[in-house]
């Protein structure tokens, strides 16, 4: 162990840590602005238009500056350490998972061969941090939000994992880089890229289940129950203010991006260009990868501003009675398809 630690180059670690962090931070600033613009567009209004001139592009920066200046309020009877720690733990959980995401054909934080497994394991810490925040706030609404979130995340992890498993059955690898590389080329029907979603009709079903599950995993409408403002005020975030609250927001957006990128990697060929060799290479592959991920993020926003929200028992019903059986049956069908064809 000591030997191993001594061999690590600290500068390399810092660089590898900084790249995903930069991506997340830039993305979060853009995504929060974009969410408002998308909401505005869907709702027939303009959204932010003032700050920064062109279509209010600096709105998120202005908000960030405002949040930095806000007082950091810690409720008197809260569990101080857990209360302060929870937002950072939540962000750390999704940030750590970015280590195994293959951003480009030539860049991945850590090319470990159990990438998917690691990612799912690390993101489950999110649940813990939300319960922590909910309990430590000493607020009944926060507690309810925390409990809802725990039930929701634990339940929806099952269909998420079952659908990820279908991809693993097809590719035979847990390494996200390998999974992406296996999807190179344009052979299906002569022009379609070799993305997994096109390879097998049951993988299309798997993707739909996966997408519904990640909506729930990242607390997006129609499954945003842990923080549903009309019921639980703001759920586990109720007592948070200023930068600690901003950390929750950041973690939430990071989580959204993470799960979307995972979806892009597993089903849409990751960093592969849709045009085969055309527009490929390290830079273009990064571009394609982010484009696919952001498109999924956009769909999430679109759904958010369109649908009402489910109730907590209906949410559980959908998971345990529909998605879980369906995802397991689908897993068997995918396996059969692979054996037969």
């Amino acid at each position: 162990m000591t030997q191993y630690l001594l061999n690590i180059n600290p500068i390399a670690i810092l660089v590898h840590a900084a790249i995903p962090l930069t991506i997340i931070l830039v993305y979060a600033l853009v995504a929060i602005w974009a969410e408002r613009k998308v909401a505005g567009f869907i709702q027939d209004r303009l959204g932010p238009m003032r700050v920064g001139g062109w279509h209010g592009w600096a709105q998120s920066i202005a908000d960030l500056l405002k949040l930095i200046q806000k007082e950091d309020i810690i409720p008197a009877d809260s569990s101080r350490f857990l209360f302060k720690f929870a937002p950072f733990m939540m962000f750390a959980a999704s940030y750590a998972a970015f280590a195994v995401i293959p951003f480009s054909s030539s860049y991945i934080g850590s090319n470990i061969n159990i990438g998917v497994f690691y990612l799912l394991a690390v993101t489950s810490v999110l649940t813990l941090s939300i319960i922590m925040a909910g309990w430590a706030s000493n607020n009944k609404w926060s507690l309810l939000g925390g409990m809802r979130s725990a039930a929701q995340l634990v339940s929806y992890e099952v269909p998420t994992i079952a659908t990820v498993l279908t991809v693993i059955v097809v590719t035979g690898s847990l390494n996200l880089m390998t999974i992406t590389e296996m999807q190179s080329g344009n052979d299906i029907l002569g022009f379609l890229p070799n993305w997994l979603i096109f390879q097998n009709p049951f993988l299309l079903v798997a993707f739909v289940i996966f997408f519904i599950s990640i909506l729930a995993e990242s607390h997006r409408v129609p499954f945003d129950l842990p923080e549903s403002e009309s019921e639980l005020v703001a759920g586990y975030q109720t007592e948070y203010s200023g930068m600690r609250w901003a950390m929750f927001m950041l973690a939430e957006y990071a989580d959204m991006l993470l799960l979307s990128l995972l979806g892009a990697t597993l089903f849409f060929g990751g960093w592969n260009s849709p045009f085969g060799e055309f527009m490929s290479g390290p830079f273009w592959s990064f571009f394609w990868f982010m484009l696919k991920g952001l498109l999924l993020v956009f769909v999430m926003m679109w759904i958010r501003w369109t649908l009402p929200r489910y109730r907590v028992d209906q949410l559980m019903y959908i998971c345990w009675s529909i998605l879980i059986p369906l995802s397991f049956i689908n897993l068997v069908l995918v396996a059969l398809w692979e054996v037969i064809f």
């Binding site: 909401a39 709702q43 027939d44 209004r45 009309s230 501003w305 369109t306 649908l307 009402p308």
Partner: peptide
């Protein structure tokens, strides 16, 4: 009512 149930957009349409 829609807003209470999490549907934000109809609210603004109706406000127009």
């Amino acid at each position: 009512f829609g807003l209470d149930l999490g549907a934000f957009t109809p609210f603004l349409y109706l406000f127009i």
